[in-house]
Design a protein around this nucleic acid. Structure first.
Length: 188
DNA sequence: CCTCAGTAGTGCC
DNA sequence: GGCACTACTGAGG
């Protein structure tokens, strides 16, 4: 029976939970409150004992909060997400998207195989929010498509990353001037 | 703006 | 087997 350590904190995007095993960061989850975060992380790790606190989890949490608030996700933390080989390829491809930039589902599909929809499903299965930057994967028409933790968070993270990144191309105006296809939702 | 077909995995009758 | 539902895309009206 494996044990996962976790720590929870508050960010401008809501409550966040960071779970670590001895090898590194296993999960970064957003949620409305501590109970729903615990339900989420336990549901993703059914046969795992969860232990609150510990130096590793607390230090990882601090680094994650810093990454969220600054837009700089290069924390140096070791990420050990669980997933299928295909999901890992999609997540790895998302990490090759530079900060401030985006790629489309179709582009990722061309690189790692599969269809755009399968890329979207693999992104949705990503349990390491922000640090594995699936939020940088968007629709071919410039819309953001969806986000496991709410489209408002995806938009906020992308905008923050564009603030710290050197101005690259017309992507910024494309993303901010086009009408987005998902309605605003309260953070709750 | 809208719908629809193609796409492929998953889940529910 | 049919139908619905995806973090999709491209064509057509």
């Amino acid at each position: 029976l494996q044990t996962l350590s976790f720590a929870m904190g508050t960010t401008s995007l809501g409550r966040v939970l960071v779970a670590t095993c001895e090898n590194g960061v296993r999960a970064v989850l957003f949620g409305s409150d501590e109970k729903s975060l615990l339900v989420d992380v336990q549901g993703r790790n059914p046969r795992t004992r969860l232990a609150r606190g510990g130096d590793m989890a607390e230090q990882a949490l601090a680094a994650v909060v810093r990454a969220i608030e600054t837009g700089d996700i290069d924390t140096g933390l070791v990420l050990v997400p669980r997933g299928t080989d295909y999901q890992r390829r999609v997540w790895k491809a998302s990490r090759e998207i530079p900060v401030g930039a985006t790629a489309t589902y179709k582009e990722i599909a061309a690189k790692v195989g599969g269809t755009a929809q399968e890329v979207g499903e693999a992104c949705a299965a990503n349990a390491v929010a922000v640090l594995i930057p699936c939020h940088r994967v968007v629709r071919s028409d410039g819309g953001l498509a969806g986000y496991r933790w709410g489209i408002h968070r995806k938009r906020a993270i992308i905008e923050r990353e564009q603030e710290i990144a050197p101005p690259a191309d017309s992507l910024f105006s494309r993303l901010t001037t086009k009408k987005q296809n998902a309605p605003e939702q309260p953070f709750h």
